[in-house]
Computed example of a mutant assay.
Amino acid sequence: MTHPYEDMGPEAYWKTAVAAPGAHGLTGLWSPKFAIKPNHRIVTAGSCFAQHIGNALAERGYLWTDCEPAPPYLLGDEARTFGYGVFSFRTGNIYTPSMLLQWLELADGARDEVREVWQKDGRFFDPLRPAIEPNGFASEDELWAARQSTYAALRRAIETANVFVFTLGLTERWHNRETGLEYALCPGTVAGEFDAEQHVFTNTNTRTTQRSLMRAIRFARSKNPKLKVLLTVSPVPLTATASGAHVLTATQYSKSVLRAVAGMAAEGSKHVDYFPSFEIITHPIFRGMFFAPNMRSVVPEGVTTVMKHFFADQARVFGAPRMGKTRKRIAAVVPKGEEDIKCEEELLNAFAA
């Protein structure tokens, strides 16, 4: 061998790996580090695209785990309206790694509670998840009792899961200058009042984002040393940006940072992996075919293609799974189509001129 390129397989060359097979002939995009089996307890959280992954796993009979199920008087779509069955716990969307870290530490008591509450029309809203109660809570006591229930569900999920799937969505975030509390959405958009002196916008860089993600992973694994973490990056563009940049370039910045950070987190780690759902949806070889006419929402065919690669590559590396009994009770809870996906950031569309 005169140089390394003589001994590489066809997957290493664009001509043989991409151009020749074309968009629908791509194979081997992912070489998973660990098996994800149907009987593994799988919990999901993060950006809205994580809901698609939970749905696909549940429909295949995998043990997607809902650690905070809806009360018996809330069923189906009504339960989802109140934030149940969307993720494995009722946190709503967790868009940033720093927000994930905040939830983990608050649930464990490792971070001091900030008793901030937003109000609107005499109702009370949780600044960490203002959209889970569409009309707000009736009282502050009810809000804090609900938060404690979610803390318990989050602890239970992390401590008992085999696999935690987390989808990174944003680098843009809002927080309180005095308390450091990070919000799910900008104050004043859903509820509360915006204060330019108190409410601070930041757009995290690669270094800051990576630090938050690694701290969150280490924290979760300190509670469950056997926990495997599968990272994905949401392909869904930003609804709006507060960065001052055009929303298209702001989206590219955010996704580039998140993709780089996810790759760095997985590099050299046996218990952290990255699955390329972002690339499958957004790469130019697919010519935008997986986006709806608004060029933001992912159509069902895109989700199907993503999960086809997920299951195919798991089977290629670890063999076909033994499915066992399908768990229909879970598949009835998770979303069925793009119109069912809960994405709190989309609420910002209401402020577009």
Rank of each mutant, 00 (worst) to 15 (best):
L170E: 00
M295K: 15
T96E: 05
E338K: 11
G244K: 09
V229K: 01
I217E: 02
L57M: 14
L57A: 08
S254T: 13
G324M: 10
W103D: 03
Y84L: 08
A161M: 06
L170K: 04
K308N: 15
I132D: 02
L348F: 12
I42P: 01
P225Q: 06
G302E: 02
R207Y: 05
G54I: 01
E301A: 15
L100G: 01
E11Q: 13
V86R: 02
H24D: 14
Y95N: 10
V114H: 02
P237R: 11
A353D: 15
E338N: 13
G169C: 11
P284N: 12
H246W: 08
T326N: 14
R322H: 14
D273Y: 03
K342V: 13
P300L: 10
P187Y: 02
P97T: 04
Y183D: 02
T171F: 00
L181I: 07
G28M: 02
W14H: 13
L248R: 14
H283S: 14
H199R: 12
N39Q: 15
R296V: 09
G61I: 07
K223L: 07
G25S: 09
R111H: 08
R221A: 04
Q102H: 09
L74W: 04
T249H: 12
M8L: 15
A45K: 00
A58M: 06
P284W: 09
C48D: 02
A331E: 11
C186T: 10
I158M: 07
A45D: 04
G192V: 00
N162F: 03
H40G: 12
H3G: 10
R173L: 11
R329T: 14
P335Q: 09
A196M: 08
F34C: 04
S243D: 08
R60P: 07
A131W: 00
P127Q: 03
V334Q: 03
L347W: 07
W174T: 04
G61A: 12
E339H: 14
T304G: 13
P21D: 03
S98Y: 01
F124E: 00
L258E: 03
T65F: 03
F318A: 14
R123E: 00
Q51R: 07
F166E: 01
A332M: 13
S256G: 15
G288K: 13
V272Y: 01
A79K: 06
E279K: 04
K308L: 15
E6T: 14
I341Y: 01
P237T: 12
L347Q: 11
T16Y: 06
Y183V: 03
P284I: 10
L75N: 13
S212P: 02
G302A: 09
C48P: 02
F290T: 01
S234N: 06
A350H: 12
F275H: 02
N349G: 11
R218F: 09
H271S: 09
F291G: 04
Y13M: 13
R218G: 08
Y13L: 13
W144H: 02
V303P: 00
R316I: 08
P21Q: 04
